[in-house]
Design a binder for these strands. Structure first.
Ligand SMILES: O=c1ccn([C@H]2C[C@H](O)[C@@H](COP(=O)(O)OP(=O)(O)OP(=O)(O)O)O2)c(=O)[nH]1
Ligand SMILES: [Mg+2]
Length: 329
DNA sequence: TACCAGGGTAC
DNA sequence: GTACCC
DNA sequence: GGTA
């Protein structure tokens, strides 16, 4: 990420057709009813409160009113992605993101259609789920052996549709096949080793523990370091796929020297168990991707991403790293 | 019908 | 160059 | 898949 003003331009424009909410919130410009009680600003025009998620109180937890719908659509999105039907998968993903952040339960095809990113065909599917609780298309597309195997293989970190298909046509069907016969890159070996843990969601309470662990290590290296978890955690999700840690320092200088020492410190204590990408440079940003585990019995292995950025890029880096991916795109 | 973000590393 | 990832 |  370059964090140039140019890159950020689209974030501030066309607010009324592209939705201003980071979680990509709900819908198109018109419907959006939501009380929104800003005590200090009684004069805030009602249209604004209805139009902008940022003008409404967020409350503490991010709700997931339409989980039954997004869970079903997720299955199709994943299946299309595994079949390399990229753009169809993107369409599904955008709709899922919009529905996930729609602020109340959807009860009709028309209501679904009012959401930006949900067109006629997806609205039909939403309606079917609302009425029957499931989608016949899922059985059709996702439940044969090939589809299920591709999904299984793509759960290996570092394996995408091409690799999964390659393993499939070599006759592999199980993770055990991969372990004993498969040709795996270093990333994929790690992904397979921790398959179950990496594919488990992380409760946000545990993410907070990991944040504190990294913060303690950071403060042992340099006083004043800012350690902030971004990603789905910062967007308020109850569970997260991984932990995205942003590190910076208000002196505007220290970011240059903390990256490797911080990682080394986390390695020494055994917190970092495996490295995926030890250093990825982008402008002044440094990024680490790896696997970690909190001390103590029964802790799972978790995917950890760390970026270290100069303080002057703190805000845009936090924006990028908080996402969602859909919002950034 | 054209387009769907923009950047990086591993192989 | 391609595959995969953030 | 959806949007323009
Ligand atoms: O293709 C991508 C993927 C990620 N990001 C940014 C936004 C995202 O929020 C952040 C962290 O990525 P991650 O994959 O961890 O996404 P997440 O939003 O944290 O979701 P999850 O709960 O799956 O980790 O990096 C992008 O800009 N583009
Ligand atoms: Mg994340």
């Amino acid at each position: 990420m370059l964090y140039s003003p140019c890159k950020l331009r689209h974030l501030q424009k066309d607010t009324d057709e592209k939705n201003t909410s980071r979680e990509d919130d709900d819908t198109s410009a018109e419907d959006n009813t939501r009380e929104g009680s800003f005590k200090k600003r009684k004069f805030l025009p009602k249209e604004l409160k209805e139009k902008f998620a940022c003008a409404r109180p967020s409350g503490k937890q991010v709700k997931d009113f339409n989980h039954h719908i997004t869970a079903e659509l997720e299955k199709l999105a994943a299946a299309y992605k595994s079949k390399k039907d990229t753009w169809r998968a993107l369409g599904y993903q955008k709709a899922i993101s919009a529905i996930r952040n729609y602020p109340r339960p959807i009860t009709s095809r028309e209501e679904a259609l009012s959401i930006r990113g949900v067109g006629g065909r997806l609205a039909d599917k939403v309606a079917e789920i609302v009425e029957s609780g499931k989608l016949r298309k899922v059985a059709e597309v996702c439940e044969d052996e090939e589809a299920q195997t591709l999904q299984r293989f793509m759960g290996v970190w570092g394996a995408g549709p091409t690799t999964a298909h390659g393993w499939y046509i070599q006759g592999y069907r199980t993770l055990e096949d991969l372990r004993e016969k498969g040709n795996l890159t270093r990333h994929q070996q790690i992904g397979l080793k921790y398959y179950d843990d990496i594919n488990s969601r992380i409760p946000r309470e545990e993410v907070a523990e990991i944040e504190n662990y990294v913060r303690s290590a950071a403060h042992g290296i340099k006083k004043g370091l800012i350690v902030m978890v971004c990603g789905s955690y910062r967007r308020g999700r109850a569970t997260c796929g991984d932990v995205d840690v942003l590190v910076t320092h208000p002196d505007g200088q220290s970011h240059e020297t903390v990256f490797q020492p911080l990682l080394n410190k986390l390695r020494e204590t055994g917190f970092l168990t495996d490295d995926l990408v030890t250093q990825e440079d982008n402008g002044n940003q440094k990024k680490y991707l790896g696997v970690c585990k909190l001390p103590g019995e029964g802790q799972k292995y978790r995917r950890l991403d760390v970026i270290v950025v100069p303080y002057c890029e703190f805000a845009p880096a936090a924006m990028y790293f908080t996402g969602s991916a859909h919002f950034n795109r």
